[in-house]
Write a protein that binds this DNA or RNA. Structure first.
Lengths: 140, 140
DNA sequence: CCCTGTAATGTAGCACGCTATATATTATAG
DNA sequence: CTATAATATATAGCGTGCTACATTACAGGG
């Protein structure tokens, strides 16, 4: 069990989340929330809640929670699309834009810390293997 | 962000948990609970709650919850160690013993599914890299 | 035009992580 | 022997994931 790949992946994910959340806490953000920040910023600041769901690859009630907390904390604003009132459009606030760069730096630091004892070719190989594993999970 | 190793690890961990929990649900178990089952079984059926905590590498309130639910569902029984009343000793029930083999089979199937497109030497390499990443997380 | 189906969102309730705080017990220093 | 520190467990409260169910809005066929 200690040698299970799945178990190791879980340990890494948990520890990385704890560290990232700790670093982000002073800004009122969490790791999951920075992923929404990143996605919206890359999309020009605006997206549908459904598009966030597809990007994060989580179930829709999870997105409801994350978006609600980000609205509550002033990072997002949202309204119903008048063209299609099923869609909830979500946009980064001015405040949120100021955090995008910080968030990118922090996440880059974590990534470097994680991989610091691997060579560039090893990192490339690792990425390839993780993609294969993700495919195995999806195609089955 | 889509290329972040940390993000890929998170996606894999989430999807594996969903699949494992689904397969285990019919037996009234979850993935985390099977790890407790495995640990206790390997230790001869009995351990302290603190030892479970050290094995799982999670914060102690998390163990309180998992152990409580396993007691509620008849997989564990617990009592205070009369030698040292700070210790809560936890033991597998008869019912739980009957699930150990099933649990081992299920977890082996998941591991094979996960890794089915990797060669044995790649799996070995992957395990080595994940151990390095875990070390990076702990020594920093 | 209505009826049925699909799509997007929401709510309820749960499991499992966490931090912060409290309590009980044991160990140790003075 | 007593005061203090350390250890193990518990509780409160929160964030993020899930499933199951409900609601609202649009789309298409009859």
């Amino acid at each position: 069990m200690n040698q299970d790949i799945g178990y190791k992946l879980k340990l890494i994910t948990d520890k990385l989340k704890v560290r990232a959340d700790k670093d982000l806490k002073q800004h009122g953000l969490t790791l999951s929330q920075t992923r929404v920040l990143y996605f919206l910023s890359a999309k020009g600041g605006e997206a549908t809640q459904k598009e966030i769901e597809d990007y994060l690859q989580v179930a829709h009630p999870t997105v409801v929670g994350i978006v609600s907390r980000m609205i509550r904390n002033g990072f997002l604003e949202a309204w119903l699309d008048p063209e299609n009132r099923r869609n909830k459009v979500v946009r980064l606030t001015e405040k949120a834009h100021q955090f995008v760069k910080m968030m990118t730096v922090v996440s880059g630091e974590h990534e470097r810390m994680l991989l610091r004892s691997l060579s560039p070719s090893e990192v490339c190989e690792l990425r390839r293997m993780l993609d294969l594993i993700l495919e195995n999970l999806e195609r089955s």
